[in-house]
């Protein structure tokens, strides 16, 4: 396993996530895709830490930060989605345009 492998894995994961964010219409799925993208970043961080950083800790620390923030973000986002569902009876993003002009 080389750096290239981790980079490839991360890139694939990121693109899948991006596809999910752009293509999916269900808010929960979009949220999950965002998580995929975050994890792609995590893999990248850890990969670089493992192969280039002699102390091998910096990237891992950053990854833990990302996971923490992601957890908080997911909590918040799920709450918003829940409220949206309660209020509007749907989580389809095409039908939600509260911010339209």
């Amino acid at each position: 396993m080389t750096l290239l492998h981790t980079e490839l894995l991360s890139a694939v994961l990121f693109v899948i996530g991006l596809y999910g964010v752009l293509a999916r219409r269900n808010a929960v799925l979009v949220l999950m895709s965002v998580e995929l993208m975050l994890n792609a970043v995590n893999i990248n961080l850890i990969g670089y830490a493992a192969f280039t950083d002699p102390g091998r800790v910096l990237g891992q620390v950053l990854a833990i930060f990302v996971i923490t923030v992601a957890a908080a973000e997911v909590g918040l986002a799920l709450a918003i989605i829940l409220r949206l569902y309660r209020n509007r009876g749907t989580v389809n993003l095409n039908e939600i345009n509260l911010m339209k002009w």
């Binding site: 991006l18 752009l22 219409r25 979009v30 993003l93 345009n97 509260l98 911010m99 339209k100 002009w101």
Partner: peptide, 17 residues
Amino acid sequence: LRLHVTGQLPNYAMVMV
């Protein structure tokens, strides 16, 4: 100018990308 504000999340994401 305000017409670009569609309120559609995917639109925003696409523009970001």
